[in-house]
Design a binder for these strands. Structure first.
Lengths: 221, 221
DNA sequence: TAGATTGTTAATCGATTAACAATC
DNA sequence: TAGATTGTTAATCGATTAACAATC
């Protein structure tokens, strides 16, 4: 998913970056369970990553632990929150007010993690004007005007495949910095625009492959 | 996401498997554009994978090409369809009739790719009994009875986080073969049950990280 | 046949794991 | 201090890329 391009900003590999949200999630859980300290070995038992890998990963960003003690859960959680940029607020727009768009707008992690929804757009006259979480669903025709005003960070594309590139182009013209793409297509955007894909069909087809494999190995036993 | 465990059935690495749906998608597009043959180099230009990698990937499953010619688009598409198991029908149930569950049920790739929806379940009395795509949304209490009859292949979990493990346990008891999990949690299931996660928060947090990185590198220039 | 392009082996690169000295 | 555990370097493993002989 264009990962190579995304590494341009630092020397941290995407393999490491994609583990950070998992650390964040497990540390949050530990914190809410009242756990004060944790060793890389204990964290390994929980996450399934090796203790060695966990120490390597964390040391990409700094020495957050203490020899003989381990890691302070609260402090480490705060560090990873900061590393992930979750102490900042990002402004977002959603294009496509179907089930996917509505699901994102309603997701608690989305609303609780500092992502501000500025507006929701669609092309369907029957949903334009409808209220969604205090936002009136707007016509896609108005998006340029809206975004020029709004200084949007993240554009979330929840449209059908055939409209997604057009929407991405509009967003790019309005100076979008990142696109979260749910359409089953690889968008063409300038190099400095971050694209993160959620390709559900690829995920489902992977299950299909593994099921077929499982069946075949079952049969050959 | 438990990838290591999933490789047990063959010697094909998950890195290769996760590229197969992309080949499938691009070949389908080429076919609908009337393209008859394609070389690994041309496919490289389209997909962004190297020609060498494409040849390596395809040769994991057989020699589908012809020296001096390249690959026949229609034949290669058929092969990858078969390798992905998309020539089979898989029976599915969805638990959680919120926006995510409805989005999956409505997705064209889901309905058009041989995934048969057997039933949709929820716990909310206000949606139980409602019709969705010809299915009456059923109470979660009935799932054991339903699935014992139904021989379900894939369980799709679209519930909130705190109910997802319970639902997974029920599915496992009913002999589910694979779980497509949209809840932000790592499910505990027996080794022979395939779990494919769609962790939207992790995807979004990755964007957050990359945006923060971009900002910092901007500032230091 | 000559040219093109695969299939496949070997080389390289990067990520993970192991080991252990540093140090709390 | 002694024991525990990190931070970090070195070794291993696996995936990607390069090269080229085979062959259509």
């Amino acid at each position: 998913m264009g990962e190579e391009r995304l590494e341009r900003f630092s020397n941290i590999s995407m393999a490491v970056v994609r583990r950070l949200p998992k650390y964040h999630r497990y540390l949050k859980e530990l914190m809410s369970n009242g756990v004060k300290r944790i060793s890389s070995q204990e964290l390994s038992n929980i996450t399934g990553f090796t203790a060695s890998q966990i120490r390597q990963d964390l040391n990409c960003f700094g020495g957050f632990g203490q020899q003989g003690y381990g890691y302070n859960v609260t402090d480490l959680y705060a560090e990873i929150t900061r590393i992930l940029g979750l102490d900042k607020t990002y402004r977002t727009v959603i294009v496509g007010a179907g089930n996917v768009g509505r699901a994102i707008a309603n997701y608690t992690f989305f609303r609780d993690s500092g992502f501000e929804l500025q507006g929701i757009f669609d092309v369907d006259p029957t949903v334009i004007g409808e209220d969604l979480l205090g936002h009136t669903i707007l016509s896609l025709e108005n998006i340029e005007l809206f975004m020029k005003e709004g200084q949007t960070d993240i554009g979330i594309i929840c449209t059908p495949k055939d409209q997604s590139q057009l929407v991405a182009d509009k967003m790019v013209l309005c100076g979008i910095k990142a696109i979260w793409n749910f359409a089953p297509i690889d968008l063409r955007v300038p190099n400095d625009v971050i694209v993160e894909n959620v390709h559900l069909s690829e995920s489902l087809f992977t299950i299909s492959y593994l099921l077929k494999e499982a069946e075949e190995s079952e049969r050959s036993r």
